[in-house]
Computed example of a mutant assay.
Amino acid sequence: MFSSKKKQPPIRTLIGEGTVIVGELRFTEGLRIDGEVQGDVVALGESHSILVISEKARVLGKVKAAHVIINGSVTGPVHSDELLELQPRACIVGDVRYEVLEMHQGATINGELRPLKADDKPALKLATANGG
């Protein structure tokens, strides 16, 4: 009945609270960060991926995955190919690109917020430009 909806990939990796990773972090399927990453966090390949950045987590670098859930802090650009969920304690300092956005009250973004589809369409058309 709901065959068009993709099944969530399993979260196979956890960066625990109190852990600090320095350098680029690449993953497949699912990753949850409760600690700190000083470097880019990037999902590999074209497959469906999920990245969870929890309330206590902090990422200093680029974030890129299909489904991104943020409730912590990201300083750097965020790119989500499918769904970006910004939970109430999400704080992003950097530009955000997304396919679909779900943003809860309390989440903050200090940067440019642009849908991926904006690249395919003209930037802006005014109603008066149609001869009216």
Score class of each variant (00 low, 15 high):
117 K>E: 15
54 S>H: 02
71 N>V: 04
106 G>D: 01
77 P>F: 00
57 A>S: 04
14 L>R: 08
15 I>H: 05
11 I>D: 02
63 V>T: 00
44 L>I: 12
15 I>L: 01
35 G>W: 14
79 H>T: 10
85 E>G: 07
109 I>P: 12
111 G>Y: 09
109 I>T: 10
1 M>N: 11
132 G>A: 12
98 Y>A: 09
37 V>D: 08
105 Q>K: 05
114 R>W: 08
47 S>Y: 02
110 N>T: 14
2 F>A: 09
115 P>C: 09
131 G>W: 00
103 M>V: 02
95 D>E: 13
132 G>R: 15
101 L>Q: 03
121 K>V: 05
108 T>R: 14
128 T>R: 12
116 L>P: 12
73 S>F: 08
24 E>R: 15
38 Q>T: 14
38 Q>H: 14
61 G>R: 05
47 S>K: 03
12 R>K: 14
48 H>N: 15
4 S>G: 14
26 R>S: 11
56 K>W: 03
104 H>G: 11
3 S>Y: 06
102 E>W: 07
128 T>F: 07
1 M>S: 13
23 G>L: 04
126 L>T: 08
65 A>I: 11
108 T>A: 03
94 G>V: 00
21 I>G: 08
113 L>H: 03
11 I>M: 00
88 P>S: 10
105 Q>W: 05
92 I>W: 02
8 Q>D: 04
78 V>E: 03
76 G>W: 00
130 N>L: 12
74 V>Y: 01
53 I>G: 00
16 G>N: 13
46 E>C: 03
69 I>N: 02
2 F>T: 09
2 F>P: 06
63 V>F: 02
49 S>V: 02
18 G>M: 09
16 G>L: 14
127 A>N: 13
75 T>E: 14
75 T>F: 09
25 L>C: 10
105 Q>H: 06
10 P>D: 11
9 P>M: 01
12 R>H: 14
68 V>T: 01
65 A>S: 04
129 A>G: 05
103 M>L: 00
83 L>C: 13
92 I>P: 11
81 D>K: 11
99 E>A: 11
132 G>S: 15
19 T>M: 01
106 G>C: 01
51 L>V: 04
118 A>P: 05
64 K>Q: 03
34 D>L: 12
103 M>N: 01
91 C>P: 13
72 G>N: 00
7 K>I: 07
25 L>F: 06
92 I>M: 07
108 T>F: 11
122 P>S: 01
95 D>S: 13
72 G>L: 01
93 V>M: 14
31 L>M: 04
88 P>T: 08
